[in-house]
Design a protein around this nucleic acid. Structure first.
Lengths: 188, 188
DNA sequence: ACTGTCTTTCAGCAATTTCTGAAATTACAG
DNA sequence: CTGTAATTTCAGAAATTGCTGAAAGACAGT
C-alpha cells in the first residue's frame, strides 16, 4: 500500500519535525497520516502505509493516546481498533498546548515553588533565590493568562487573536475609565 | 568547585527539563548555572562547577549562542571569554519564543504552502489538501497574532497579559461601536 | 475450552545523540 | 616571530532512544 507524492511529503515532513516537537519520527508520521486521512485507519493499515513494524505502530499509537491527540473508534462487525484525529482543529491546538504546558512548564513551576522554601546558605543563594522568584512570577503571569484563554470558547478566542494588537488601543482608552484590578498588581 | 544544594537542585532540574525543551542536559545545566549566577562565568568555571569536560562546555555554549540565549563578555586584563544570560527576563522569553517559532513552526508553514501548489492526484489528495489548508490558515492566524504581540513594548505586553480574559468584556462592548476589520474576515 | 484475529509487551539489536580527550586552531603578550 | 593560554574541532567511546520480531495477552465466535 502506498501514498501519493503529496501525502508522502506531508508525512515525511511531520516525521522530521517530530524530533523538534518532542515526539519521535514514527509518532509524527502516524499523526500526519491520520490527520489527513479521510477515514479512520487501523494499526495494520498504518504499518503498511508507513512501512513500520506492527509493534512500532502500536507503541506510537499508545504515545499519541497518552497525549490525547488521537481517538479510538470502532467499526460495525470489525473488532480492530480504528484511529482518527479530532475533527476540530482548534481542539487539537488546545490539547497540544495543554499537554506541552503540563510537560514543559508545570514541573518547573512546582520545582521553583519548592526551592523557594529552602533557606539560603550564602549570598550566592540569596541571589539565586531572587532570580528564581523573578522567573516564577513571570511563569505565573503567563500561565495565568493561559488559563484565562483556555476558558474562552473557540469563537471568542479566534476573535481576540484576529484583533491582535489593535486591542492595545482599546485598553489605552478604556483603562482611563474602568480600573483594571490585576494590571497594577502584576505589572512588573 | 561545588554548588550549594539550592543551586545544585536548580541546575539538575533544568538539565532534566532540557530534553523536553529540545536542548540537551548539558546545555540546560549550563544555562541554569549562568542564569542564577551573580557574575559572568568563564568556560573553565562552568566545567568545574558542573563536572563536564571542557569541550562539552564549549559545545554547549556554542549552542546557547546559536539560540542567542547567552551573551559573551570580557573582563579587564583577562582574555578568557565570560558568559551571562541577558538581564531582562522578558527579553529571554521573547528570544525563546522567537527561536522556537523559527525551528518548530516556520518550516512547517513553508512546507504547507509548498504542498498547496501540487496538483492533487485523486480524491484522497483533494481531502488532504483541504486539511492542509485548514492547518495552514490556523497557523497563519496564530503567527500573525504572535507578530502583533512581538511588536509591543514589554510594558504593554505585560498589561495585556495581566488583563487576560477581562478583555473579552471590552471587545464585546466596543465591537458594537467600532468595526474590527480583521475580525469578520478571519474568524472561522 | 478451543481457535483465530488483533493488540501489547519486551528483550535485544540498530541508530542516534551525547560526551570526552587529544589534537588543531586561534588570540595575543612579549 | 615565539610561546603560552584559551578555545574549538573531531574521532570514537558511552549513553540513550528507537525499532523489530517473537511471544504473550485479550477477546469474540464456535
Amino acid at each position: 500500500m502506498h501514498l501519493s507524492t503529496l501525502q508522502q511529503e506531508f508525512v515525511l515532513h511531520f516525521g522530521e519535525m517530530g524530533s523538534r516537537w518532542g515526539i519521535n519520527r514514527t509518532v509524527g508520521q502516524i499523526y500526519a497520516l491520520l490527520f489527513m486521512s479521510e477515514r479512520p485507519l487501523n494499526a495494520e493499515e498504518i504499518s503498511e502505509k508507513l512501512s513500520f513494524s506492527r509493534s512500532n505502530v502500536s507503541m506510537g499509537l499508545k504515545e499519541l493516546q497518552s497525549w490525547d491527540l488521537v481517538r479510538l473508534r470502532h467499526m460495525p462487525d470489525d473488532r480492530r481498533d480504528y484511529f482518527t484525529t479530532p475533527d476540530d482543529l482548534w481542539q487539537i491546538v488546545r490539547t497540544l498546548v495543554a499537554e506541552r504546558k503540563k510537560r514543559e512548564i508545570d514541573p518547573t513551576l512546582t520545582k521553583l515553588r519548592e526551592l523557594q522554601l529552602q533557606v539560603p546558605n550564602d549570598e550566592a543563594d540569596v541571589h539565586a533565590h531572587a532570580k528564581m522568584r523573578e522567573l516564577r512570577e513571570l511563569i505565573e503571569l503567563l500561565t495565568g493568562w493561559y488559563d484565562d484563554m483556555q476558558r474562552l470558547k473557540t469563537e471568542r478566542l479566534v476573535q481576540l487573536l484576529a484583533i491582535g494588537s489593535k486591542l492595545q488601543k482599546f485598553v489605552d482608552n478604556a483603562s482611563q475609565i474602568v480600573p483594571l484590578t490585576r494590571q497594577s498588581k502584576e505589572a512588573c
